[in-house]
Design a protein around this nucleic acid. Sequence first.
RNA 1: GCGGGUGUGGCGGAAUUGGUAGACGCAGCGGACUCAAAAUCCGCCGCCGGCAACGGCUUGUGGGUUCAAGUCCCUCCACCCGCACCA
Length: 890
Amino acid sequence: MARYNFRDAEAKWQRVWADRGVFRATEDTGRPKFYVLEMFPYPSGRLHVGHARNYLLGDVLARYKMANGFNVLHPMGWDAFGMPAENAAIASNVHPADWTFENIRVMGDQLRLLGLSYDWSRELATCTPEYFRHEQKMFLDFLKAGLAYRKESWVNWDPEEHTVLANEQVIDGRGWRSGALVERRKLTQWFLRTTRYADELLDAIKTLDRWPDRVRVMQENWIGRSEGAHIRFRLVDRDDTLEVFTTRPDTIFGASFCAISADHPLAETVAAGDPEAAAFIEECRTLGTSEEAIETAEKVGFDTGLRVRHPFLEDVALPVYIANFVLMEYGTGAIFGCPAHDQRDLDFARKYRLPVTPALWPVDAQVLSDAAIQALGAETQSAFDVDPLQDLAQHGSVFHVRNTAFTDTQSDRYGYHLGPLAAAPTVMGVAEAKRVVVNALEAAWTGDSAITYRLRDWGVSRQRYWGCPIPVLYREDGTMVPVPDDQLPVTLPPDIDWSQPGNPLANHPTWKHTTCPHTGQPAVRETDTFDTFFESSWYFARFCSPNAETGFDATATDYWMPVDQYIGGIEHAVLHLLYSRFFMRALRDCGYRIVEEPFAALMTQGMVVHETYRTGTGEWVFPEEIVSGADGALTRQADGEPVARGRLEKMSKSKKNVVGLEKIVEAYGADTARLMLLSDSPPERDLEWTDSGIEGAWRYVNRAHRLVSEPPVPLTPIGTPPPNRFAEDADALRRVTHRTIAAVGDDLQGFRYNRAVARIRELTNAIAESKPGEGMDWAMREALESLVLLFNPMMPHLSEELWQILGHTELAAEARWPEADPALLVDETVTIAIQVNGKLRTTLDLPKDAEEESVRTAALAADPVVRATEGKTVRRVIVVPNRIVNVVVA
RNA sequence: GCGGGUGUGGCGGAAUUGGUAGACGCAGCGGACUCAAAAUCCGCCGCCGGCAACGGCUUGUGGGUUCAAGUCCCUCCACCCGCACCA
């Protein structure tokens, strides 16, 4: 028998699938739909086996669902705008478009090599005008709806990519792709109003019950809703107020200062008349935003000399500082400091010798007199430990809200009614205290309850060429004019001079010059392009009707959306996944008919990691550059430099541990690579790529081929009805077969692909051990056919080949998933574990559902049990039907 | 600091959700076939003691609940990830 020729077989079946349009999807209301999508790639060059895993995980599900009668949509495309294309253009003078389309060609071929079940007729690339013209239209709709706007603000500037980055794209103070330290710049930029949907996006996270918890938590944290209050402090000797945000209005009686951001308007007012203040502000702005800078930066402030009145204590005035730790972007850019209940405020108070006044006590603490509070505050610089109070605050214990302002007489004195404060008990919980204080603020017109979000509006302007042009112009008088719909798309000029730094569109000699469509006046185009996350925020909708005249055809999205299973990397937990959720809602509010939640279920797959090697100086080394000496020491062949095995790392070019996809497919075939990538590790976890692993998968592929080509027992012809009787062995094989069918189905549905592989191997082992006997020829055909169909989602080419060898003329890809016979899933006998005092002594094979009394008798009579219970009294015998017997002795 | 997660043989990982810990695979050891190698096939394979039958121990640590704990509760330890001058 010839060995499995995977090269011919894989090419042949890929051709057959394509010719017959097996994976072509069309709307069919008669069948349930299933939309499987893997996050589409950026066409950066070549795929390695690590990339392949992602697509494979979706492919297995798509094929499984197809076999189970679902109408499956499984498309693929290219997130084709982005910096790397421009970098290539600058480095080697290729046009970004040429570079991108060449990569698309190469990577598309690589994907086809793997035999993935894509409907290639829906392929799209986001850098084509046919695609991005629709998002230009969407943007204009956003503009009309007030969801897009332009403003001058401080932004994150990536000095390496020469462009602005969104907050989500700044990781630890560095650009998410360049790794360059991000600078702050004040620029006029386009924003999308994501904050309008903060609450909706937050609330709807609850409905995403098929998303990983950690992604949901990350989005919740990112939106960062905080409930609290705005408090307006009256400025002394000025007809103005200072508004602060706090989550702890209950600590207002412990306030000892206010602090404002260096970017706060009031700070600028002060700076205008005070050079020292201006210098301090300048100093604050040069401070870095990286983690190290923040951790080491001392909390410093500048006393503006301004004072504000305490909202409740007439005779108390608080100093106003400009402080380097107050962020203009959060809340109102101003805070009040309560040193007794906040570590950072305490640090600040100690430094500037400000009073530390406790406002809250544990419920069992002695209620102090005003004098005692003063005394305590005075010595608090070192003695008063705030931590236990913070601790209690976290855990919701009851506190004394202890302040003389909270009495009727005082409310009379201040000339306003304190409402619930008058009747307030002196002891109340933190939550109640917050409420009481907010009510008092509202009654006195000095504050309101307020909610603040960490989420910022999405800055979408990028000062780059290879992106979608923002479709607006500016007249000479500065008026912004949207490009009329009938003049879309605004396309990119092909001729770019890459020798100049900065934004290539702004540098282009003619492109930006145009005329106003309404007045005919000279005008200039917006030279910024969209953030590339703009394209990926709606591509899944485009896949439903890739040739529609509009962005998407609502009847198609009605049928296909939402994506039933989305698969991709955790790195998009708050980038792409949040933007897409926002985008759907923004489109909805512009009159588009689309679902609000685009991804019903999400799976975040682990990385493929591989061993690395480095020299003593930390240089990465390719494994093939290394030679092993007689003593086992590793050195670099070229220069004899000692080399040590490094950590397992995600495959990347820079770490020199990439395993190329073609190389593996060439040597072992797509199915072997697929099996390797699906075995061993569960999909969410990292998978270690090893040579022995691929060898093991290769062995299995050949073993399966051999087993079906030369079965251990001859088979009955196709369609033979089952015999009346099966010998014990044949019956046992049938039970294994049907148990495996049931288990593999469950495992595939639950993304436990590694376990499904293990079950399939078990069935393979059982088949290989089978001997001739009555009914075995029939059971053998049943087992082999089931096996071949069960591993079809994982190894589709081998499955087709063997399905044909088994005599079938239709395709395995189009065959129905085998059905498990419930009658064969229950055994007639069960193995019962027998324990004495919880320790296993023996096992007994007994009839299923045997009488408890007879099980008990059999257990007590078993030799090991007799030995273990000798001379002891049997106190209890616990019998769990069909499971276990535990004999308790003393 | 806040939040989330993980910890099981030499390795990747299973364990019907409280009921025989270590499925399946990798590596390793022994054997068959072969002039030899590869491939293939058969056997062994958590640790300790024992020729063996068998006994003891074992799921990061220590405790608890239970007839019974990898699984539930508490304590501590280690590692990984996310967010963070967020008021």
